[in-house]
Amino acid sequence: MRNNLAAVGIWVAVLFLVLTTLPLILSGYWLKILTNIIMFAVLAQSCNIISGYTGYPALGNVVFFGLGAYSTAILMNRIGAPFPLALLAAGLISGLYAAVLGLPILKTKGHYFVMATLGVNEATRELVNNLDFLTGGGIGMSLPIPDRSIQSFYILIYFTMLVILVSCTLLVHFVSRSPFGFALRAIRANEQAAGVMGINTTLCKTGAWVASAFFTGLAGGVYAYWLTYIESQVVFSIIIGVKFFVILLLGGAGTVFGPLLGAFMFQIIDQFIWGAFPEFHLGVLGLLMIMVVIFVPNGLLRLFETRIWFPAKGLFQALGVMGTRAGRSEKG
């Protein structure tokens, strides 16, 4: 147990070191890819809270991404709010949206919940398209260009995204061991029984969704500032929503590090596909999704555990036993 903890500690330290030094030496192109990986890790991790731990498949969670992006853009563009303030507000607005919507929508379950979240996303996008005076409608919206060098701006974006990822992951880590996390897992396993066990299911579910929405909104806000131009077709697109779901599945839903691993693998593969098959990018992506579902349904983390880690451990133990036996027989 203690050994495990130490190993995890070392891994986290190494990862942290790599993630903080890499952006200073990487070229602009690779920095962009790395930032993208971190962003999708945030999105998948946020989704993990409501879908992985609580078992509510929020396929339409991308609505908070779009909402965060537009809130940031509107606050910066129309009111002239500074970026950090606009970003925080964007997160809070997304969280509030989830709280208000969550009370009715989280009463639905399974397929109905999926469809409700998708419906909310569509309705919100259409609404954004129609509020021209605020959002620029179908033309999209630009954000103020930052008054610093491009390189330092991208590094700033990178670190903002990284801080969000770290705080989101820490939250998931602590929640997963807290009574609240316990309640979420009970809800995932059996909601009716959870209610009878004295768990306030409505409150817990809504809390989980609000947290999920808050971080998704933050990622959307950073994304908007990063690209300095957003349009509703992009930030509310279902394909982003499905992407971070695939990432969650690929890495392993309901685990702390699964979404990070998934985001890394997925974005690398995605990047490769873009390079190799520019014309069939979508198609190959679709193929990849099908393959993930058929071949890695429990996520890479569990695949690693069951196919590599446990057998390896078994092998070591077997070797150990043989070793001690050999030792004994020598003595004997």
């Binding site: 897992r185 009970a186 396993a189 059996n190 009716q192 029984a193 959870a194 009878v196």
Partner: peptide, 10 residues
């Protein structure tokens, strides 16, 4: 419950 409703995974 009549039909047992355990929390799977725990």
């Amino acid at each position: 419950f009549q039909i047992t409703q355990p929390f799977h995974g725990l």
